[in-house]
Amino acid sequence: MDLSIIIENLPIYLTGLKNTIILVSISLALGLLLAVPLAILRNYGSPLVQLPIRAFVYFFRGTPLLVQMFLVYYGFGQFDLLKESLLWSFFREAYLCALFAFTLNTAAYTTEILRGAIKATPHGEIEAAMAAGMSRYLMVRRIILPSAFRRALPAYSNEIIFMLHGSSLASVITIVDITGAARIINARFYSPYEAFLTAAVFYMAITFFIVFLVKKLEVRWFAHLQPQSSKAAIEAPP
């Protein structure tokens, strides 16, 4: 093990870290934004609306992310119509292709997670909302979604970590994320242990940080489910 290689080339890893964080956070944010309406329509839409959403989720959950990324990055170039249009300046960039594929992928998984969470809304809550005279829109916004988000949080935290790990695939299409940085170092110095173990440490640190954040969020969102005694202990003056 020669750690001086890593220390000297730390800037490459930091560039990689930046790219990983940007890729993961943007695709997660856009994916979630897409998934919320899709999950609502998947539950409450007409069968005609549900069908394409089901097909979308089925395709993206049933095929490897690597293949999805290749379909976008290599595959879209097959269509002359697309190549001549303005969109091509978007799909020409490896970075944006990865972002596009990751966003659709996480949107599909998140739709499925939210669909289950929405479906599991207790009947009582819906009946109470109807009895209070809420419109359908108000009911979704105030009752169904907040309670569904709570139920979805544990599964969604898994999805965040899967997306973080999946983002390492971006290195395959020339993007310098953390894995990409490791591949550069390995190719330059032929030092696979140092290169990839450093990448592994970076990923582990991010993973544990995410787990920590989700735990914090869980405490906040599930505050009403905490046992009374522990609440009293928190409120008690020191």
């Binding site: 790990h165 290169a195 990839f196 592994a200």
Partner: peptide, 17 residues
């Protein structure tokens, strides 16, 4: 905590060495 791809590259290239 570690992505599949990183582990695979570690075992493939590292195992070689």
């Amino acid at each position: 905590g570690i992505p599949d791809l990183v582990l695979m590259l570690l075992i493939f290239f590292g195992g070689q060495v």
